[in-house]
């Protein structure tokens, strides 16, 4: 994947820190808990300086006990707090799986009690971090009604969606793509803003092919679109931003315009988000299609460590261009 260099403005990671800081200033019921988030400032330094400003009562270092402190987030949320749980890497969210899918996700359905909590963690590959520090677990949670799942692709969306997630009365899983943390910058508005959950964004308009993507793959899609344009192919890029519940309308409207659709996602292929969107397009947009729906994804394998292996594993710009070429034949 590629990102444009030398940008000015706020980095993706600073946008996340700003959202947390500003929300904690705004609402005393918000607190953060997780591993090494206090004096150390978090494994990626998202909460650096937070404990000095907000104190150890609101920036709570936890032992290695994800199941416990995710469950504690549910209990605190039910008591009217708005906890934010940091899992050090998104991969480790599996250690708290049960509390998320059985306790948090099903509470409101049964009792109509709100569970306003955010569980956030750095996801994604590209950093030579191997099978246990590179996963994109959003698909696991997109299969759980009661949860909302967000993977922002830009600093603007990272900040605005995190604020929206914190203000939402439902449990929200928020995955930050760590490859983007310090590689992507953008000039952000100075004032307070939110980005609506469950609303996709057309990042680039085009007429010939639609790429539906999210997370770090947004940059891959945009680069492929630039290169396709050189060949005279106009590509529209839809950034999902929220993985679940999905914004079907934006996807279907784009496909109605271009008649061709590529699903680009970093998660593994089978039952990934692209598989679901393919089904939606096939069911609800079939008459608009001029060619097959193509998935460009990671293969059904764990994420390898060695650079040539990981590069092979991850969807590259050339893979997207090949899919665009294939669809251009229709």
């Amino acid at each position: 994947m590629s990102t444009a260099g030398n940008q000015k403005g706020t980095s993706y990671i600073d946008a996340i820190s700003q959202a947390l800081w500003e929300e904690m200033e705004r609402d005393p019921s918000i607190f953060i808990m997780g591993e090494d988030i206090g004096i150390y400032g978090g494994a990626f330094k998202v909460t650096e300086g937070f404990i000095d400003h907000f104190g150890p009562e609101r920036v709570i270092d936890m032992p290695i006990a994800e199941e416990a402190f995710i469950g504690m987030g549910v209990g605190a949320a039910l008591m009217g707090m708005r906890p934010i749980v940091e899992v050090q890497y998104a991969d480790f969210i599996s250690c708290g799986w049960d509390q998320i899918v059985n306790v948090a996700a099903k509470m409101h359905y049964r009792t109509r009690d709100a569970v306003p909590m955010v569980i956030r963690g750095p996801s994604g590959a590209g950093l030579r971090a191997g099978p246990f520090h590179s996963q994109s677990p959003e698909g696991w949670f997109a299969h759980v009604p009661g949860l909302k799942v967000i993977v922002p692709g830009t600093p603007y969306d990272a900040k605005g969606l995190l604020k929206a997630a914190i203000r939402d009365d439902n449990p929200v899983i928020y995955f930050e793509h760590k490859y983007l943390y310090r590689r992507l910058k953008e000039v952000l508005p100075t004032g307070d803003y939110t980005v609506p959950i469950s609303k996709a964004d057309v990042q680039r308009e085009g007429d010939d092919v639609t790429i539906v993507t999210y997370g770090a793959m947004l940059q891959t899609a945009l680069e492929a679109a630039r290169r396709a344009q050189e060949k005279g192919i106009s590509v529209e890029v839809v950034d999902l931003r929220t993985i679940f519940p999905l914004d079907k309308d934006t996807i279907l409207n784009s496909v109605a315009k271009t008649s061709k659709a590529i699903m680009l996602y970093e998660d593994t292929r089978t039952l990934g988000i692209g598989a679901e969107i393919s089904a939606i397009i096939a069911e609800e947009g079939f008459e608009n299609l001029d060619g097959p729906i193509i998935r460009v994804s990671s293969p059904d394998a764990p994420i390898p460590y060695s650079p040539p292996l990981e590069d092979f594993f991850l969807p590259q710009v050339d893979d997207v261009l090949a899919a665009i070429d294939k669809l251009s034949a229709y």
Binding site: E67, F69, G71, V74, G75, A76, L78, V103
Partner: peptide, 12 residues
């Protein structure tokens, strides 16, 4: 599962 939840209520 309600051991952590109770601890979370106590934390609040």
């Amino acid at each position: 599962d309600f051991y952590p939840v109770a601890a979370g209520a106590a934390l609040a």
